[in-house]
Amino acid sequence: MKPRDKFIFTWDFIGDSVEGRPNLGALVPIEIYRIMHYCFREVVEEQFGTEQGEKLIYEAGKKAGFAFFNHVLPKTTSHQDFIMNLQNALRDLKIGIFRVERGDLDGPLIIASISEDLDCSGLPELGYGVCTYDEGILAGVFEKYTGKKCQVKEIDCWCTGDRTCRFSIEFFSDSI
């Protein structure tokens, strides 16, 4: 086994599940995802503190968003098609039911909700939001499509008792 200098995520790390998991297939239960997600998160926060940990999770989500945009979403320049493609992809991959509630891609702000969110739906009410990874994914996807920097913030979460996660997606004039 050779030592590695730096880990870099590429789409190769998704692997070939058909070949690799001929019996078990590509799907795993949501519990496995959440075990991995929250245990990983606990460790990160233990190591770097809440604020820094959140930042790391957000950035990881953003990387995932870039990859998601590049490998999952069909290419389009139409705003309408982009939103529709994103909605369909999130639903088909069972990540959540994405709905834009306010604003558009030509404006400075979009308010969107994700129901039945992969990260938090069904969790106990904690009094704080937990969908930092989702924030990062949305930021990555929207930055890639618009070419503008954007900041995504969760404003409602299942864990805050709101049952539907709601995000503000704010665009800046700076290019990415």
């Binding site: 709905r99 834009v100 509630e101 306010r102 308010i111 909700s113 129901s115 709101d162 049952r163 539907t164 709601r166």
Partner: peptide, 10 residues
Amino acid sequence: QSNLQSNLRH
């Protein structure tokens, strides 16, 4: 409440 709100907003 949440679903209705989200649906209506959407």
